[in-house]
Design a protein around this nucleic acid. Structure first.
Lengths: 231, 231
DNA sequence: GCCGCTATTGTACGGTCGTTCAACAACGGC
DNA sequence: GCCGTTGTTGAACGACCGTACAATAGCGGC
């Protein structure tokens, strides 16, 4: 159960580097005060980095504070307890994912097919398609059942994701207008969105657990084939 | 981080009940020796039970030994260390899943369609469809990247599962015989098996994370629809 | 240049962790 | 009934855990 102590934040923050432009030898500043918002962001980033590197074992106050280049006590100054820090990290992680996908869709041509293709391509390429990222999700999922804050975040953000998928499918499959046709279409749409989400998640999971078995473009093709089959 | 101490094994083992038929008061036996194989099995069962109940937090020597109704020292008498116990539990868990599915398939009528239906029905009903079970998988997945023993087990048993799906799809889609047709069919089969596996896993995951969103029979229908679309 | 606010430090505390090991006791063989 | 084998116990160890808190020090306002 031993972890290599995280050497001061490689990439995520200012770390323990005694800052300041002048190289004065004796009396250099020992730390740099930051605005709460900045520090909180840095701590959240450090938390995610630790999860990526060490999985569940990385989720300790000492590991995270070392990664952030900060003392153990600081975390409890900015967050009431560890659970809240983790929940904040989960919220950030989720938001980054969904916003990344939305941006990819926005950058695509305006046809529904192109938008879906862009969405799938983004789903199955870095930074999302990364075995480290699985380790992060897995830890969050594992806490889901026993942590209220995590449940709250899950409900908030997952709805966003489903809405995005739902909306793209609606565009693609077109809208019938007759009330009766609309009702059936609705049911179909709901199930279709669930199915597509499941297929994406499942393929993504398979790739992360055993990258050799499946190429990203094959995953995209499978998803497009599924959507094709809907019409 | 506090756990309610597991009260002596409710269902999995003989627990701490001082055994023996006679109710002699003073000098009752304080424990019962068991064959190594039996004890190992009981410890594995206790490990899985703890994972179901407490998730990752249940994965401690003290929690597990309490669940098994046994002292802390005993685990290291039967397993060299915790990792090996967990890997053994993972192997057992995987084997139970795959064998349960195989049996369900074997009980079904002999037509390929009925076999697939039985397979899907078993996948989306207890004991597999259970949020507690997700908690177990999630812990194992989380260890996958850093634990050699877990990786070994994963490689061994996941292959079994994929082979089962692959074989059922092959039966259903029928075998073309021309060498060229066969080759294309092979490629399709590989991808189809991966896709179906992903769809099942993804739907299963969605159900576990938010049971209200999806009914089991809808999940089965989605999978059957996917297979239907293949021909 | 000094002051006040507060972000930050680092030690301390009580607790749980995985593993070790000497002592103990169940039980089959005689 | 005693003995030897060995499954089992439970205390002990050192390491790490999350949190609390008094002391420290960066830095903007004056």
């Amino acid at each position: 159960m031993k972890l290599p102590r995280a050497r001061g934040a490689a990439s995520s923050g200012p770390a323990r580097t005694p800052p300041g432009p002048q190289g004065g030898e004796g009396a250099r500043r020992r730390f740099e005060r930051q605005l709460p918002a900045q520090r909180r962001a840095a701590l959240i980033a450090a938390t995610i980095e630790c999860l990526k590197r060490y999985g569940h074992d990385g989720l300790s106050i000492r590991t995270i504070s070392a990664q952030a280049g900060v003392s153990v006590g600081l975390i409890n100054h900015h967050f009431p307890n560890k659970d809240e820090l983790v929940a904040a990290a989960y919220r950030h992680f989720n938001r980054e994912l969904v916003e990344g996908l939305k941006e990819a869709v926005a950058r695509a041509e305006k046809t529904p097919a192109a938008r879906l293709r862009a969405f799938l391509a983004a789903s199955f390429s870095p930074p999302n398609l990364d075995a480290d990222v699985l380790a992060v999700w897995v830890v969050f999922w594992g806490m889901y059942r026993h942590s209220r804050p995590i449940q709250r975040v899950q409900r908030d953000t997952y709805a966003d994701y489903v809405r995005l998928v739902h909306e793209m499918l609606a565009d693609l499959l077109g809208g019938a207008v007759g009330t009766r046709a609309r009702r059936t279409r609705r049911v179909d749409l709901r199930l279709a969105a669930i199915g597509l989400t499941a297929l994406i998640d499942g393929l993504w999971l398979e790739w992360c657990l055993e990258p050799g078995r499946l190429r990203p473009r094959e995953a995209v093709a499978l998803c497009e084939g599924w959507v094709e089959g809907l019409r």
